[in-house]
Simulated scan of single mutants.
Amino acid sequence: MTQASQAPMRRLIDLPGVDDLELKALMKPRYADPDARDEFPEIDALTADLFGLTGDEAEAVERPVDWDDIHRLSGVDLAEAFEALGWDVTDKRRKPLRLLPHYALPLALAIRGVAGELPFVAEPDHPTTDWGAGLAAEAARFRKR
């Protein structure tokens, strides 16, 4: 499969609210602690808005027998696993997002269609065609006469 025929990867950081929460986690590293989710209700509010599941709801979902526990990976391994699923879960320096441990399970469940849902993204605009270029060239030639 050529690069041109592959669908572009979706970037988690581009979803509404993710970048803002990443900035909060930069200023207050406790946000990134998986055990601190109860202290910061905005984390669950964001995962519910984006994927239709809070962290607790995601943990309560019965997972398929062949579930690979992708959400238990960490760091680069987790980022590579999501990249294989078509999602870029890194920041602009290509480091895994600070809050990725909070997003991993709801995102994995939604990607695989087990529970929750993926955020809507409009299809890209159709590329413009150059059919008008021929008309413009013809008009230029006509004006020169």
Rank of each mutant, 00 (worst) to 15 (best):
Q3Y: 14
Q3T: 09
A4W: 15
S5I: 01
Q6A: 08
R10P: 14
R10D: 10
L12W: 11
D14Y: 02
D14R: 07
P16V: 07
P16S: 15
P16L: 08
G17E: 10
V18T: 04
V18C: 04
V18Y: 04
D19G: 04
D20R: 14
L23E: 11
L23M: 06
K24W: 14
A25H: 02
L26D: 12
K28L: 09
P29V: 00
P29K: 06
P29L: 02
R30H: 12
D33K: 10
D33Q: 03
P34E: 09
P34K: 04
D35K: 14
D35Q: 15
D35A: 13
R37I: 07
R37L: 05
D38M: 01
E42A: 04
E42L: 05
I43C: 02
D44M: 01
D44F: 08
A45K: 13
L46S: 05
L46C: 04
T47L: 07
T47K: 11
D49T: 06
L50A: 05
L50C: 10
G52Q: 03
G52I: 01
T54W: 11
D56Y: 07
A58L: 06
A60W: 15
V61A: 06
V61L: 08
V61R: 13
E62T: 13
R63P: 03
R63E: 04
D68N: 07
D68A: 01
D68S: 04
D69P: 04
D69S: 03
H71L: 00
H71D: 08
L73E: 03
G75K: 06
G75F: 10
V76E: 14
D77L: 04
L78T: 01
A79D: 09
A81N: 00
A81K: 05
A81S: 01
A84Y: 12
L85V: 00
G86S: 05
W87C: 09
D88A: 07
D88K: 08
V89M: 12
V89D: 11
T90D: 14
T90G: 12
D91Q: 08
D91H: 06
D91Y: 06
K92D: 15
K92I: 01
R94Q: 12
K95Y: 12
P96I: 00
R98I: 03
L99W: 11
L100S: 02
L100K: 02
P101I: 00
H102W: 06
L105T: 00
P106M: 02
P106K: 02
A108E: 13
A108I: 01
A108F: 09
I111P: 02
R112M: 08
G113H: 14
V114E: 09
E117F: 15
L118A: 03
L118C: 02
L118Q: 04
F120P: 11
V121K: 14
A122V: 01
A122D: 14
E123N: 12
E123P: 06
P124V: 03
P127C: 02
P127V: 04
T129V: 09
D130F: 13
D130E: 13
D130G: 03
W131L: 11
A133G: 08
A133D: 13
G134N: 08
L135E: 11
A136K: 11
A136V: 05
A140F: 12
R141N: 10
R141H: 14
F142N: 03
F142Q: 11
F142T: 05
F142G: 00
F142W: 15
F142K: 09
R143E: 14
K144G: 07
R145Y: 11
